[in-house]
Simulated scan of single mutants.
Amino acid sequence: MTLDIKFRVAREQDLDRIVEMLADDELGRKRERFEKPLPESYQKAFQAISDDPNNELIVACMGNKVIGVQQLTFIPYITHQGGWRATIEGVRTSTTERGQGIGTLMIEWAIQRAKERGCHLIQLTTDKQRPDALRFYEQLGFKATHEGLKMKLV
C-alpha cells in the first residue's frame, strides 16, 4: 500500500488538531490542555514559531485531514566549525493512523528538510518512558550517543 501523505507548514486552523494529537497519549495528557477554546498559550507559541524563520511546525496530511505533526528548529552552532543542526520535537501521529509507516515518512521528510537547510546533524530527544519511540528512532538510524539532561523551570 502506498500512502499519499503530503507535508506542509501548519496553519492557524490546524492548531486544535495539533494540540489534540499532542495530548493523545499517557505523557501528553499530563502536560497538554486540549480543551475548547484552547488556552491562549498555544496561540502565542504558534505565532512565535510562525514568525521565526528557524522554526517550522509541519503537519502531515492525508487528503484534507491532519494526521501528524512535528516541529523542526534550525540552530547555528559555533561548534562543528560553525555548522547548523536541526532539532525534531513534538512528533505525533494520529492514533487512528498509527502502524502504517506515517511516522517513518515524517522523520524521513524532516531529515531531507534538514539537508535542504544545510544542516550537518539532526537531533531529537524522546522521553525515557517511551521505549517504543526510542526503538523507532534507532531503526531510522538515530543513535543514543549523548546523555541528555533537562531542568524544569516552572
Rank of each mutant, 00 (worst) to 15 (best):
G83W: 05
E97A: 10
Y42M: 03
I107N: 03
R29W: 04
I5Y: 04
R31T: 14
F46H: 08
L153N: 01
D25T: 04
A144Y: 01
E97I: 00
K152S: 09
Y137L: 07
G101R: 10
E56M: 13
F142Y: 09
S50Q: 15
L153C: 02
Q123M: 14
A110T: 04
L38C: 03
A110G: 14
K6H: 11
I75E: 04
L15V: 01
R130I: 01
M1H: 13
K128F: 01
T2S: 14
L27Q: 13
A110K: 09
R113A: 08
L72Q: 05
R98D: 01
Q13V: 10
L57D: 03
A23M: 09
D51S: 15
E56A: 13
T125M: 13
M1F: 14
S50G: 09
K44M: 07
Y137D: 02
E147G: 02
Y42G: 04
H120M: 02
M151A: 02
K115V: 14
G101H: 02
R8W: 11
G82C: 05
T73F: 00
D4G: 01
L153K: 03
V69Q: 03
K30N: 10
I88C: 05
E40M: 00
G148Y: 12
K115D: 05
Q112I: 01
L3P: 02
I111E: 14
V19W: 08
N55P: 00
R31Q: 10
G101N: 05
G141A: 05
I58Y: 06
Q70L: 15
